[in-house]
Design a protein around this nucleic acid. Structure first.
Length: 273
DNA sequence: CCTGAAACCTGTCTGC
DNA sequence: TGCAGACAGGTTTCAG
């Protein structure tokens, strides 16, 4: 499910329900969910910590605790939900934090992750994990100029490069297809062949696709539903065989960097190779 | 440096 | 109906 707009949506949704609460205990139902530290240390260290803030960097959710940061990466199928009271874990719950508010109300923050790819880190050195990420596409460091210069430092296929979180942070398979279509660029185009004008169009497209995703509370597909609506506005993603909203040509599906990739053959021509 | 393949997992859908 | 195979929003690691 989660790319930048979905993670942002979840961060905003859970923030009011968890900030100010104290973690009473932790239940770890799938040990490998914990990237660091060990289950034993995790339980000891997290217990008694008050949650002081919630934020997002790239696709990581960050729960700020008094003495640590709790980093959560949802990967393919992870989700976070708040449950009131004391209840049994649900199917596919991998880690559950029991919380208590000032007035003694109990609730739980559950990390549910069907495919078990998600990871959680408890650390006082978040930079060791977040430090290698590229810029946030919605922050001021990310400009048309920055994008042009950095695309030209590499000679890589556009789509895999945009998916590379050390290059730019937050895009995933859906939003990359959408923004390449908006910018009329082919996913297999080479990064160093992009003109200034194309880089400008791409930077605009990236920001507008992500902002639209956030505005619509992300995309909800399959079994994960958060009330997001962006899936109803896909231009190319998951629309193989359907008409391009711009020119009416049939959307084609191909594989790029092992990922299903959707393009309009007319709007996004591939110039040679 | 760049690309592609495989691995990590479970569930759903498609085609025979 | 059953079953094999493909595929799914992400990332890491390895081979060439």
């Amino acid at each position: 499910m989660p790319e930048l707009p979905e993670v942002e949506t979840i961060a905003r949704a859970i923030e009011p329900d968890i900030v100010g609460r104290t973690i009473v205990s932790a239940e770890v139902l799938w040990a490998r969910t914990l990237a660091t530290p060990s289950v034993k240390k995790f339980k000891e260290q997290v217990q008694g910590q008050k949650i002081t803030g919630v934020s997002r960097r790239a696709k990581y959710l960050i729960l700020q605790l008094e003495d640590y940061n709790l980093l959560i990466h949802l990967r393919m199928s992870g989700d976070l939900t708040i449950r009131k009271g004391k209840i049994k874990p649900e199917k596919h719950d991998r880690l559950v934090l029991s919380l208590r508010s000032k007035n003694g109300k109990e609730s739980q923050l559950a990390f549910n992750d069907t495919r078990k790819f998600g990871r959680i880190w408890l650390t006082d050195q978040p930079e060791t994990i977040l430090g290698k990420l590229g810029p946030e596409p919605l922050e001021k460091k990310f400009t048309a100029q920055w994008l042009f210069e950095n695309l030209h430092k590499k000679k890589r296929q556009l789509k895999p490069l945009l998916l590379d979180q050390t290059f730019l942070a937050g895009l995933g398979n859906i939003y990359t297809d959408e923004c390449l279509h908006m910018a009329k660029l082919h996913p297999l185009g080479l990064s160093n062949a992009i003109s200034r004008k194309q880089a400008g169009a791409l930077s605009e497209a990236i920001q507008s696709a992500l902002k639209e995703g956030i505005r619509r509370n992300g995309a909800s597909i399959d079994w994960v539903y958060r009330g997001g609506e962006y899936q109803n506005y896909f231009r190319v993603y998951d629309r193989e065989g359907k008409p391009c909203p711009v020119c009416g040509a049939e959307i084609q599906k191909l594989i790029v960097g092992q990922r299903g990739t959707h393009v309009c053959p007319k709007c996004q021509p591939l110039e040679r190779k």
